[in-house]
């Protein structure tokens, strides 16, 4: 049930992120319930009554302060635990990316996502590059490395099911990676305000079986021979 709070995870590192999420969820959840519980109990139980006086509790001795400082010390320890769990997951997701089976250049502009594949020659900037608009085809179970570039303003490449988000900053090339675990179509949303069409800057990650992906490459990419033709080389 609780798992349904988040979208289905279909990436290899999504589990690491979700693990940290649930760790924080339970830690802060328990603290939250405890703190609200004490507060509400006190508000209900300790109302002003005839003859009863408040407890004089200035909290200026170590003995009294311990009631606040010891819980705070526990908070500190839990914080460090969250930091530790988070750091290793972050390193995996955003640290040095693994070698990519598929490399794609993602070009964001008001209000479209363009995906450029290097084509059969494996190099960007040649005539056999293949560009698709708003649809990113990738094979399942393969590492996809991407390079993000923007033509105009800051956008943010966000695929909720992949637990992937990265801002796209004009003037920079930002690389990253993901590996999808399940075939299907997963939506891309821009998550940085980029102008009046921000709300419709929509795309899809189409995760295909290796065979389907190979079929798509065969249909849409120029053939190896065409790429090596003299006409292509001149460009």
């Amino acid at each position: 049930m609780l798992q349904d709070l988040l979208p289905t995870d279909v990436s290899t590192f999504g589990g690491d992120i979700d693990h940290v999420f649930w760790l924080i969820f339970w830690i802060v959840g328990i603290w939250f319930v405890a703190a609200e519980g004490v507060l509400f109990y006190s508000i209900i139980r300790h109302r002003k009554r005839e003859g009863a006086t408040a407890m004089y509790l200035p909290g200026d001795t170590p003995r009294q302060l311990a009631w606040v400082l010891i819980p705070a010390l526990v908070v500190l320890c839990l914080d460090l635990g969250i930091d530790r769990a988070g750091a290793s997951a972050w390193e995996r997701v955003k640290g040095t990316p693994p070698a990519g089976d598929v490399v794609v250049r993602i070009n964001a502009k008001q209000f479209n996502w363009n995906f450029t594949y290097p084509g059969p020659d494996g190099k960007f900037g040649t005539a056999d590059d293949v560009t698709t608009e708003n649809d990113l085809h990738v094979p399942v179970g393969k590492v996809v490395r991407f390079e993000l570039q923007s033509e105009d303003v800051i956008h943010s490449f966000f695929v909720p099911n992949l637990r992937l988000k990265q801002d796209v900053v004009p003037g920079r090339t930002i690389s990253g990676w993901f590996e999808a675990t399940t075939t299907g179509t997963y939506e891309i949303a821009c998550s940085e305000l980029c102008g009046f069409g921000h709300y419709s800057m929509h795309g899809n990650v189409i995760v295909q079986t290796p065979a389907e992906y190979a079929g798509w490459v065969r249909d849409k990419w120029p053939s190896q021979t065409a790429a090596n033709s003299p006409a292509a080389k001149r460009n």
Binding site: A35, V38, L39, S42, I43, H46, R47, K48, R49, A52, T53, A54, M55, L57, G59, W67, V68, L69, P71, A72, V75, L76, D79, I82, D83
Partner: peptide, 23 residues
Amino acid sequence: ILISVPFAIIVFAMIASVWRGAI
């Protein structure tokens, strides 16, 4: 995340300020 520590102290102290008062 460390900034949660001073804020936790302030919030706990506020709750302790309510505790066993004549509200």
